[in-house]
Every structure is written in C-alpha cells, then in structure tokens.
Design a protein around this nucleic acid. Structure first.
Lengths: 130, 130
DNA sequence: CCTTGCCTTGACGCCGGCGACAAGGTTTAG
DNA sequence: CTAAACCTTGTCGCCGGCGTCAAGGCAAGG
C-alpha cells in the first residue's frame, strides 16, 4: 500500500503521514523506487493516531499507544505507559472543564448584568415599567 | 503615566501594551521626546482588555468593550456590540463544554476498559476466573 | 563625562499540526 | 512521445499573543 492509499483509507493526508513518520510514529518500508510502502498494520496505527489527535492529544502523547499496538496488543490502551497518559489527559480535561465552567458562569453573570443595565448613561427609554 | 508604570499597574508588560496599541485598542499620547503617555482612563481600559483576554477572548472580541468604555460607560459590557460578543462567546464556551464533556466520557471509558483488560497477550495471571 | 534606567522602533522566535507550494523522478495509458 | 497521476525531498506559511533580543535616544545623578 502506498502513501496515497493509506491516507485515503485512514481519512487523513499524505502530508500528515509524512509528518508522523518524521516524528517517529510510523515506519514504512521503501520500494526500489523510493516509494513508501505500508502494510495493513500501519493502517491500524494511523487510525489510532488520528483518533487520539482528534481527542486533543499531542503527538508525544500518542507515542505509547502506537508502541503498544506494535507490541502486538489488540488495543493501544492496555499498556502501562498508555494508561499513564490516559490518566494524565483525563486529569487535564477535568481541570480544563473546571476552568471553562468558571468562565461560563462569569460570562453568564456579566451578560445578565449587561442586559439589566442597558446603556445606563443614555436617556431612559420610554417604556421602563409601562 | 509612562508605559512602564502602566504595565506594572495593569499587571502586564510593556510589550503587550505596544501590541494592543498596534492593534488599535489603546491610544496613548506622546510627550515631546516621543514617549507614550497614558492617563488614568487607559488603566481602566487595559484592565478590561486583560480581564477579557484571560477569559479566552481574542483581541478582536475585546474591541467593542474598549469602545464602550471610551463612550463613557461605567462598564464595557453594556453596549449592544459588547452584548453581542458576550452572547457569541457564551455559546462558544457552551459548545466547547459539550465537546470536552464528550471527550471526558470517552477517555474515562477507555481508561476503565484498559485497566480491566491489562496486557491481555501476556501469560495469564495466576487467578483468572476458574 | 559616564553610567543607569527609562524609553523608542524593528524584527525574529515560539508552539503544533499540518497546508500549500516548488521542482523533480517514475510508471502507466494512449 | 506525451500527458496524467502517482511519488520524492525541502521550505515557507499559519494562527495569536506576546517574549526576547538588537540598536539606539533621552534624562538625571555621581
């Protein structure tokens, strides 16, 4: 399987695949003419990478999962390093959720206050209590 | 008040202040020697900018709030344009919260599954079910 | 006079995951 | 023979909010 086919089958771009390779996540072989050649296992790996990236992981975070798959596991999640990353990421997400929740509450109160105090300095609109 | 003092009083850097100016958010006067000179009102403006940036707004989002303050309002939130931005940002935060919540749930299930199926391919640990 | 400590205008670096060229080689079909 | 459709490496761009020099001017104290 050449890079174009893999890209299409994995739902990504050839550029991305070369990028993953440059960062040591994928290792294709080379055919006589220098083309990258991938086997089916790499498809699985690339899908794992995509899934994790889509969830907000960085390439470094993804590494253990790829190694885990390469070690022959059916899931990239079961190895200790992967679990460690999963825990850490979960904690990060929780922290971020807290932050965002606080921001949400603040924006909400700011908004309600703003609507209550519409343009104070302007002359009163005609129907205040009507 | 010169730029250094304003930076310190507003809890930011001179670099940031020049950046805000370059993007039209702050307009200091100039003294004879070319130094930027700010009045007290600018301190209020810069604090507004900081507060909004810290909440995740971009500089473009901040603009209406600054204009609102400059228009003489006690709060930068009360003008219609500000309210519009507040609404939009609130919606964005809500959407992001949903996304993050979904991600959290997914990570959680992934993690629990991973812990349940610890290294399947390895030789059975001594106490399996039978 | 000289140093210190302000200030000025550039301009490049950063982070991350690629997109978008450029300039060329290979293989196949017509 | 040529065009099409793959592939290769390499390099710059992007987004945003600055940090961090670089090179120089101005004011005040010793």
């Amino acid at each position: 399987m050449l890079i174009g086919e893999l890209a299409e089958r994995a739902g990504t771009s050839t550029r991305a695949l070369r990028y993953y390779e440059a960062h040591g996540l994928v290792r294709p072989e080379r055919s006589a003419n220098g083309y990258r050649v991938y086997d089916e296992a790499e498809l699985r790996v690339v899908r794992e990478i995509r899934a994790l990236l889509d969830v907000g992981f960085g390439l470094d975070d993804v590494r253990p999962f790829v190694a885990c798959l390469r070690a022959g596991n059916a899931s990239g999640d079961v190895c200790p390093d992967s679990v460690t990353v999963l825990r850490r990421k979960l904690a990060e997400v929780d922290a971020y959720l807290d932050r965002l929740g606080a921001v949400r509450r603040q924006l909400h109160t700011q908004l309600t206050h703003a609507i209550a105090h519409r343009e104070e300095p302007c002359p009163r609109k005609r129907h205040s209590a009507h």
